Amino acid sequence: MKKSAAFFAFFLVSGSAYAVVPTPTLPAPPPMPAPQIGGVKAAVLLDVNTDQILLDQNGNTSFDPSGLVKLMTAYLLYQAEAQKMVQPGERISVSVDAWHAPGSRMFIQPGLPVTVDQLTHGLLIDGGNDAAIAIAQAVAGSVGGFVDLMNREAAGMGLRQTHFVNPDGMPTPGQRSTAVDMARLARALLVKFPQVAKIAGQASYQYNHITQYNYNPLAGQKDITGLGVGLASADNWDLAVSASKDGRGLVAVILGASSRAVAGTDASAMLHYGFHGWQERQVYPAGAIVAQLKRVDWSPETLSVITPKTIQVVVPKPSQGKVESRFVADPTLQAPLKANTQVGTLDLLWNGKVLKSEPVLAKNAVAKAGWFSRLWHRVRGSL
């Protein structure tokens, strides 16, 4: 007997063919349940392409992010390289402060040659605090100046619950962040500087004849691309892991795990859930009209609202249900309005739950209508 997706076909018996019988309609299997991450302070899973939070356990509560601070240090280093302030092959002078940095180290020292690229490896693979101090001084001239840049960049990214005190993540009063903020910082780093994945996912590197191994317990595994590890205190591990598969990227953040191994096991379960329990869908192409607003005191009377870019969402598997959209106009909209001005947001919903919100723009400009135009609009509307 041969079975297809649509029907069963039966054997011929005594020269007669039996009728094709449709298969019964079966209910769709339930969506993959989210893993329950126990024994940690916070856990967040974020989809990189869509910026959607797929799993959130205590993700907006502030904690010491410890070594995950280095994600911002790396971001500013890559930004400085893009601005030609430093170059990967450039030799950096190592200060005494960097040499004597406590905690994890790549063992740089004054007088020993080290390049920006080598510091990047030391920062991202074994979380070298000495590398972080040397990078801060090379980019901003001082650690204090670099920390100012870190907080300015965090504010620009909208990381409202994050405040940095140092570039290395050593526990210091006042340094705080959340799992959601760290996930969004990791996403910004991956999106703007994708070259980070070529280094952060490596299992080891060598500097000055010393082989250092990646503290990330998932480093070197298939699809894993980084990103950072931190130890806030004894039995208090933080981990940010990025992974890429079939064109999708995910970031899993764990704060406050009891061990590095536990953090890795939890992050692995989260990544599996993200890749196998969710799928990507395109909802609108760039430039799609999603709403039209009419006002008699506008000229022209109609304002078309468009998407500035392709809008994608990830939805639970199996793909049962419908993605719906809801335009929310800016309540303060007034003419005149220029084309490409943001006029509101578009909520994308799955079974009534908001998956994400995207800004939407005016396709055309509108001006204030004169008295004759307003009168004509009213007359035409009454016909």
Results as ranks from 00 to 15, higher is better:
residue 211 T to I: 13
residue 246 D to I: 07
residue 157 M to W: 03
residue 14 S to T: 13
residue 96 V to E: 15
residue 81 E to Y: 06
residue 379 V to W: 05
residue 349 L to D: 01
residue 352 G to D: 07
residue 119 L to K: 03
residue 94 V to S: 01
residue 379 V to I: 15
residue 150 M to P: 01
residue 110 P to R: 08
residue 77 L to H: 03
residue 338 K to W: 01
residue 83 Q to C: 11
residue 353 K to W: 06
residue 54 L to P: 00
residue 49 N to P: 00
residue 356 K to A: 12
residue 84 K to P: 01
residue 378 R to P: 03
residue 217 P to D: 03
residue 354 V to E: 06
residue 363 K to I: 09
residue 336 P to G: 08
residue 115 T to M: 04
residue 317 K to S: 10
residue 319 S to K: 11
residue 321 G to S: 08
residue 54 L to G: 03
residue 368 K to A: 15
residue 277 G to V: 12
residue 66 S to T: 12
residue 68 L to Y: 02
residue 196 V to C: 08
residue 60 N to C: 11
residue 333 L to D: 09
residue 224 I to W: 05
residue 178 T to D: 00
residue 140 A to R: 04
residue 182 M to C: 11
residue 40 V to Y: 01
residue 281 R to P: 03
residue 8 F to R: 15
residue 45 L to R: 03
residue 17 A to T: 13
residue 176 R to L: 12
residue 48 V to C: 07
residue 54 L to Q: 02
residue 191 V to L: 13
residue 185 L to M: 09
residue 211 T to W: 00
residue 279 Q to S: 13
residue 294 K to P: 00
residue 132 A to S: 06
residue 76 L to D: 05
residue 320 Q to A: 14
residue 306 I to D: 08
residue 115 T to P: 02
residue 111 G to I: 07
residue 19 A to Y: 01
residue 64 D to W: 05
residue 358 E to I: 13
residue 33 P to C: 13
residue 233 S to D: 14
residue 187 R to H: 05
residue 258 S to Y: 07
residue 166 N to A: 12
residue 380 R to W: 07
residue 325 S to D: 09
residue 278 W to Y: 03
residue 171 P to V: 12
residue 274 G to M: 11
residue 298 W to I: 10
residue 146 F to I: 06
residue 226 G to Q: 09
residue 22 P to C: 13
residue 329 A to W: 04
